[in-house]
């Protein structure tokens, strides 16, 4: 009798973990839940939206917040116009991102080569990064008004410049860390090989900065699209996803405005997905810092 009562609890302890615990520890469940849960959230929101529960919750109507099905059908109907405007936004964001990242990286390299000036320069860049886009865009419009006699060209240059400055600041601050925060003793190690400053840059600093470049891009890819959209509000020439959102809200055409909001979201998500893809290909070689 005593023996059985002694054994019973032991057997109970050895019993498998609870279902919830086993599920949360299962690799396959973990991986699939990373996709299933967000999708589920999206479906729930879609359902609330389509059934107008969302409208009741926020005290709005289908005119200011059109139903998803209506947005989708209008999106399909206006596809050529959406495509032209999206291309303008992608061009401003993409070129600005490219120029800004290159400019930012070059500034970071200069700051590493001239540390005395570099430290002060980085404070300046940090201050630059905190200028609101809404302040930068009108200033840039003004500065670029003599660039070309064609309004579409001047506006595009202005937008690209705003995106460039925003992305450059982000890249400089991150890349500088990547170029200078090397493993302890690695600079001493290179010194024992009589490495020149140039060798030190190419063999140690630049490879070390690669993960930091991606850290910068994770912020500046979405930021470049946001910046392009916002600078379109202020641009002289009427084109781009951001400008269409504004124009249509002004004209109380909320459904069309929502079509362009959707387009902006798609551009952002696709750009981020491309970045993640590039990172997984380039960075699989070594573990990031």
């Amino acid at each position: 009798m005593a023996e059985t009562s002694f054994h019973k609890p032991v057997a109970k302890i050895k019993r498998k973990k609870s279902l919830a615990q086993r599920l949360s520890e299962n690799k396959a469940v973990q991986q699939s839940s990373a996709i299933v849960l967000p999708v589920l959230l999206g479906v729930v929101i879609f359902a609330l939206w389509q059934t107008q529960v969302l409208h009741k919750m926020f005290g709005t109507d289908v005119f200011t917040l059109p139903l998803p099905t209506k947005i989708a059908s209008l999106f399909a109907q206006n596809l050529p116009a959406v495509w032209i405007n999206s291309l303008a936004t992608i061009k401003a964001a993409g070129l600005g991102l490219l120029f800004g990242s290159i400019l930012g990286y070059v500034v970071a390299i200069l700051a590493t080569f001239f540390p005395d000036m570099g430290k002060g320069g980085l404070y300046l860049v940090g201050a630059f990064a905190s200028i609101p886009i809404a302040a930068l865009a009108p200033v840039m419009n003004n500065w670029t008004k003599d660039v070309s006699s064609t309004a579409s060209v001047r506006s595009m240059v202005s937008k690209i410049l705003v995106v460039t400055l925003v992305c450059a600041a982000d890249m400089t601050l991150n890349a500088y860390r990547g170029l200078t925060e090397v493993k302890p003793y690695s600079e001493d190690l290179m010194a024992t090989y009589a490495a020149s400053k140039r060798k030190l840059l190419f063999k140690l600093r630049i490879p070390n900065s690669v993960p930091y470049i991606f850290t910068a891009l994770k912020v500046s890819v979405p930021a470049s699209i946001m910046t392009a959209v916002v600078s379109e509000y202020f641009a002289e020439y009427i084109v781009g996803v951001g400008r269409e959102i504004r124009e249509n809200i002004v004209l109380s055409q909320y459904s069309i405005a929502w079509v362009y909001i959707t387009a902006a979201c798609i551009i952002g998500i696709v750009a981020y997905a491309l970045l993640m893809l590039a990172q997984s290909i380039l960075m699989k070689k070594f573990k990031p810092v």
């Binding site: 493993k183 003793y185 001493d188 490495a195 063999k203 490879p207």
Partner: peptide
Amino acid sequence: FGFVFQQPVLFDWRTVKKNVELPLEM
């Protein structure tokens, strides 16, 4: 000089072999 530091100071982005080749590249 060959200097062996307290920490291995290997470059994460190079394979083991490429790490050994580093000073030879220099």
